[in-house]
Each structure stands twice: as C-alpha cells, then as structure tokens.
Simulated assay, not measured.
Amino acid sequence: MSKYIVVDGDQVIFSPTFTPAIAIGGLKTKINGTGHAQISGKSICIDGDEKQVKLQNIKYTSGSFTTPGDCYLTIESLNYDQVANHVFSKKKVIIVGSSFTAKLTVTKPAQMPNPPNTTDPASVYMGSGTFSSTNNFVKAN
C-alpha cells in the first residue's frame, strides 16, 4: 500500500506516553528534508533525516515522580513501513507509514513530593510517534 512521501517541514508528532513516563506539552516539531528531489518545491526526506529531529525543553512526569522534570525527544528508529523500498534518492525515502520508535532522554529528573529530593532514577524512556505530511500528491511504497 502506497503512503505519502514526507517532505521538508512536515510535522513530527510524538505520543505523550513513554511508559511509565508522560511527556507534557506541545509534542510537535518539524523534520528537515535533505533529499535532492523535490515535491511542490520542498526537498523530500530521506533515510537519516529523522536522526536530526530533536524536540527540546519538554517537561515529563513518571509514576510517583509527579514534580515534573526536563527532557528532550528524538526519533530512535523508523518502522519498516516508513521507508520506501522502491524509491531512492541516493538513500531510501521516508514515507508516512505507521509509527516510529521515539526516545525521551531525561536532562533533569522528575521528583517525588515526599520524601523530598527523591528523583526519578531512569535516564531514558521509549515511546512512539508519527509523521503528518503536507504532501498529498506523491506516494511511494
């Protein structure tokens, strides 16, 4: 089944759930396309462009650590159905597909209200996210 090709400026939407952590706030950013080919004047996104996506200054909580901590979100890996197998632009092309694996990296641990100074021991949580493409013309599979 063909899916739309992701292009420069398309939205990256992170799910708030990074079990047991929850990311708080606007969980959207954009991906920069570096492919040579263009769709409607925008560069296509190619395999590897997802590694440059980083959503910073995000708050999170986790379980009983209800005083928010700070983190950033990145794309850990694409799902098999998010890379076109039959379209190449030196590298494979990213398509909308299902959901990618996302990573929440803690920069300031969330805390428990009681006892004071008890901080979240985890430094990383895994979750997911999706792409939303402005391209509604060109598909690939």
Rank of each mutant, 00 (worst) to 15 (best):
M1D: 08
V6G: 05
V7C: 13
D8T: 08
D8M: 06
G9M: 08
D10E: 06
T19R: 04
A21T: 06
I22S: 03
L27N: 05
T29Q: 06
I31C: 05
G33I: 04
G33H: 07
T34K: 09
A37H: 00
A37S: 12
Q38W: 05
Q38K: 15
I39M: 10
I39P: 09
I39N: 04
S40G: 13
I46M: 07
G48I: 06
E50L: 03
E50F: 09
K51T: 15
V53M: 14
L55W: 04
N57P: 02
Y60L: 00
T61D: 07
G63E: 13
G63H: 10
T66Q: 14
P68R: 09
P68M: 09
Y80N: 09
D81C: 10
D81H: 08
V83D: 00
S89N: 15
K90P: 01
K91Y: 02
I95Q: 06
S98I: 01
K103S: 10
K103M: 08
T107K: 11
K108S: 13
K108T: 13
P109E: 14
A110W: 11
P115K: 13
T119R: 12
T119D: 10
T119Y: 15
P121R: 00
A122D: 14
S123G: 15
Y125T: 04
G129N: 10
F131L: 09
S132L: 11
V138M: 11
K139V: 08
N141S: 07
